[in-house]
Simulated assay, not measured.
Amino acid sequence: MGITDTTSWNAEALAEILADDRGRPVLFTNARILTMDPLIGTLTGADLLFVGSLLVGVGPGIITAAADDGAIVVDCTGLTITPAVVDTIALADGRAHRSAYVATLAPGNTTDFAVVPDALATDVASAVAVVMTSPEQVRALVAAGRPVLWAGTDVPGRVTAAEARIPAAGDLTGSPRVGVWIDRNDFLRQELTADGRYDETRGGHPHAYQGRYWIDGDRVDYLDDLGFWAYGEFRGDELHHAGYVMKLG
């Protein structure tokens, strides 16, 4: 199948989405939607409505309120909308309950989806393959409500992934997270130093693990000198790591 020229596809709608600073709803309409939700299933001639990163509606008839709500409308005639983040366990029928499904196009979930031609999307797996191997055929790729690809090309100013490399250690002098973190039973002691190094004492054994760490928001990533990676999460005044809950000593 040859490459289709899609450069003019809903160009005005894209401009409105990128220029919007009022949180207007966005409606992708008249699409076939593979929701991957076992209750909703596959819809035809349907609409997908979202506000920012939140998916708020899916199904036929939502278009009737588009003008009243001031929605930005994207016509998807002849196109299929699928989750952009795929729950491969669900695809293999490995989820026993609907509540265990992730990344479906059900209201209340994150607005992550792809729009591809019907002929290239017999199912979710084939649609995702188009995103990975033929991005020029992708009409839209939306991540948390913001377009990443549109009409087969990168959206101007799109966020890109950080360079794949191990970052240099930062100077954490003065950080309130530097110090010795101790779990409730005093089994684990993890010292985070200002030069980006950590040193763990476990069960009274000093230097059980040592290595480098990086803090990104409330997440901390560890690269041990033995070569393995691990992570922790700051929750208020606690550091959660590998099942342990620690506080500054």
Rank of each mutant, 00 (worst) to 15 (best):
M1S: 12
M1P: 05
T4Q: 00
T6Y: 00
T6R: 00
T7M: 05
T7G: 04
S8V: 07
N10Y: 01
A13P: 00
E16K: 14
E16C: 09
D20I: 02
D21T: 15
D21K: 08
T29W: 02
T29S: 14
T29C: 12
T29Y: 02
M36C: 10
M36V: 09
D37F: 06
D37Q: 13
D37R: 09
I40G: 06
T44L: 11
D47E: 03
V51G: 14
V51D: 14
V51M: 15
L55H: 04
L55G: 03
L55Q: 03
V56M: 15
G59L: 03
P60S: 09
I62F: 01
I62Y: 00
A67N: 12
G70Q: 11
A71F: 03
D75E: 14
D75R: 07
T80C: 15
A84K: 05
A84W: 02
V85F: 08
V86A: 08
V86H: 14
I89R: 13
I89E: 10
I89L: 15
L91I: 08
G94F: 10
R95D: 12
R98F: 12
V102Y: 09
A103R: 15
L105N: 07
L105I: 05
A106V: 06
A106S: 11
G108L: 09
G108Y: 09
T110H: 13
T110F: 10
T111G: 12
A114F: 12
V116K: 06
P117T: 01
D118K: 13
L120I: 04
A121D: 02
D123N: 15
D123H: 07
S126M: 12
V130D: 00
S134C: 11
S134L: 14
E136V: 01
Q137W: 03
V138T: 01
L141T: 00
A143K: 14
W150L: 01
V155F: 02
G157A: 07
G157R: 08
T160H: 11
R165D: 08
P167N: 14
P167E: 08
L172P: 02
L172Y: 11
S175L: 07
P176S: 06
P176R: 04
I182Y: 10
D183E: 08
D183V: 05
D183C: 09
D183F: 07
D183K: 14
R184L: 06
L188T: 07
R189K: 13
R197D: 13
R197I: 04
R197E: 09
E200Y: 13
E200K: 15
R202D: 06
R202C: 10
G203S: 04
G204H: 08
G204V: 01
H205S: 15
H207E: 15
H207I: 01
Q210P: 04
Q210D: 09
G211T: 07
G217Y: 05
D221F: 13
L226W: 14
G227D: 04
F228P: 03
W229V: 08
F234G: 04
R235W: 03
L239G: 03
H240E: 10
G243H: 01
G243F: 00
V245N: 04
V245D: 05
M246K: 05
K247R: 11
